[in-house]
Nucleic acid binder design. Structure first.
Lengths: 229, 229
DNA sequence: TGTACATCAGTGAACGCGCGTTCACTGATGTAC
DNA sequence: TGTACATCAGTGAACGCGCGTTCACTGATGTAC
């Protein structure tokens, strides 16, 4: 673990590149992200960046991982800080929204339109990319174990999805029923729908003044939808 | 209403530009949309496009309006074709999803990340942009009038939003309560959250095989969340 | 401890490319008398 | 019906700009003997 000065300098430069990349992401969006512009801000000739990053796509991957990691850290911390499934769910939801509003361009990179021509390499992004949903599953799990998860059958048969859900149970190490998992998926999608509408300003900029209140109400409804009590 | 040949030719060219623009949107995304590329495909020198469109942003606006119009047309037709709030809601949801999956790039333009540096001019996009939510409000309205809308109070007070909701009631010409409207907003956001996850492939490409079944289940849950019965 | 060599960060020029927008122009189509 | 003029679509050149990526290079920092 002894780091040489060179290694430290290298790590520092890579961190600088990521930071500058994030700034450009915020200013111009992912599609306009440019290695040359990053090099300029780094105070270095454009070809020098290739010592650190193989291509523009690799820089994007760096930013994707960075964003997932930041969000994952914050969500895990917030969830760990409170007790009980309902409180943990509220903490998760609030953290996602707060993070999204603080760094909308990173939020857009992860949850908005796909970047044309770019595909995140699964090996690097899957881990950090699943931290939020892992937390959500754990919350459902805890609610279930404590007998706080209402069981409700849907009018639509989930039979065709049973094998897929079994796969999910194995990957996530949870014994939740198909029905509970399906509800979890909807709660997950709904939460991000509500946050996206807020972050991307789909309501119209002047429709709702008290966005915080609206979101709290939505979270309360989602708790119901989840079936916690 | 008599159209001269020149006017007809002009309208045709403008339609061609829109069509080609859509193709480029699909291929490269909104941020990479280029007047020069459209001109090339139109078989015309780049400056010629400026006879039809004042700038790149105006072309984007054209595409936004075009997309909203197509979606609005399809949703209205689907909703009109069936009876009762539940059926109408299901038709609305299915149509949004089907449209989104058919033209994901147009879906992304309207409901994905904002295009950096571009702001849709309200005068042109507000009308077509509200057609889906207008339909949704009407469905809630009809359910309410038929006594099919369960009234449920939320644990979060909507007081701070009362004036905003009154504004919405005036604009949309509906007598729905704050609570019903708030639930409508959440259903709206949740629906688009579910569709976005599907269209943008947030589930992971191989997690769910039977996406149709999953979505039908989600719609059924949203009917519950809406409070229809 | 000193020297020879290897590693590596960063340079600068070049490749070939695409972009939005302006402007003076040509030539065909339409219109007024 | 014919002529003079106005309108308008499309041309081609130019402006100034930015991009990703490669490559041979310099010079400083590290390492092995």
């Amino acid at each position: 673990m002894s780091t040489t000065p060179r290694e430290r300098a290298r790590a520092q430069t890579l961190a600088d590149i990521t930071r500058i990349g994030r700034e450009h992401l915020a200013a111009d969006g992912a599609a306009a992200l440019s290695l040359r512009a990053v090099a300029r801000d780094l105070g270095v000739v454009s070809s020098a960046v290739y010592r650190y990053v193989k291509s523009r796509d690799e820089l994007l991957t760096l930013l994707v991982v960075d964003a997932y990691t930041e969000l994952g850290d914050e969500v895990e911390a917030a969830v760990a800080a409170v007790d009980g499934p309902v409180e943990k769910f509220l903490a998760l939801g609030r953290t996602v929204r707060t993070w999204g509003r603080r760094v909308p361009s990173s939020y857009a990179l992860l949850f908005g339109s796909p970047v044309p021509g770019y595909h995140a390499p699964a090996e690097q992004t899957t881990g950090p990319g699943t931290r939020v949903i892992v937390q959500l599953v754990r919350i459902f799990d805890e609610a279930d174990r404590s007998g706080l998860l209402e069981s409700r059958a849907s009018s639509v048969s989930l039979g065709p999805l049973h094998d897929d859900f079994t796969e999910v149970r194995n990957e996530m190490g949870t014994p939740l029923s198909d029905d509970a998992l399906a509800r979890g998926v909807l709660v997950w999608a709904s939460l991000f729908g509500a946050v996206s509408f807020d972050v991307f300003d789909q309501y119209g900029s002047e429709t709702f003044g008290a966005r915080d209140v609206l979101f709290e109400h939505q979270l309360a409804c989602l708790v119901e939808l989840a079936g916690f009590h």
